[in-house]
């Protein structure tokens, strides 16, 4: 399985985007691979916005898990729970 990681530009992030992605990767199976640039072959794209403005350009036609600051799909969580919630979203697919 291939997961896309798409960051916003990081002008003033209120969460640690890189740490979140690292925590998500630690919980995903070893056979998952990651792509940062070309999302054509990705099954899911994790879009990681640093704040709730969510200005990252979202790849079209893809299954998206949207992190926007301390929120996922609009629901707010403590920052240390975000990775678990991303995994929940991913597992439900």
């Amino acid at each position: 399985m291939k997961i896309g990681i798409k960051y916003c530009g990081g002008c003033n992030p209120v969460i640690n985007r890189k740490r979140l992605v690292k925590q998500v990767m630690q919980q995903l199976p070893d056979d998952v691979s990651y792509e940062y640039f070309d999302f054509n072959d990705c099954d899911v794209v994790l879009v990681v916005n640093g704040c709730s403005i969510a200005c990252a350009e979202v790849p079209s036609g893809k299954d998206i898990i949207m992190v926007a600051g301390p929120t996922i799909d609009g629901w707010e969580y403590p920052e240390d729970k975000l990775a678990d919630k991303v995994i929940e979203k991913w597992s439900a697919r």
């Binding site: 990681i5 798409k6 960051y7 916003c8 530009g9 990081g10 985007r17 640039f37 990252a56 350009e57």
Partner: peptide
Amino acid sequence: DPEFMDLA
């Protein structure tokens, strides 16, 4: 850098 290229 994937973390910044959306702006850069």
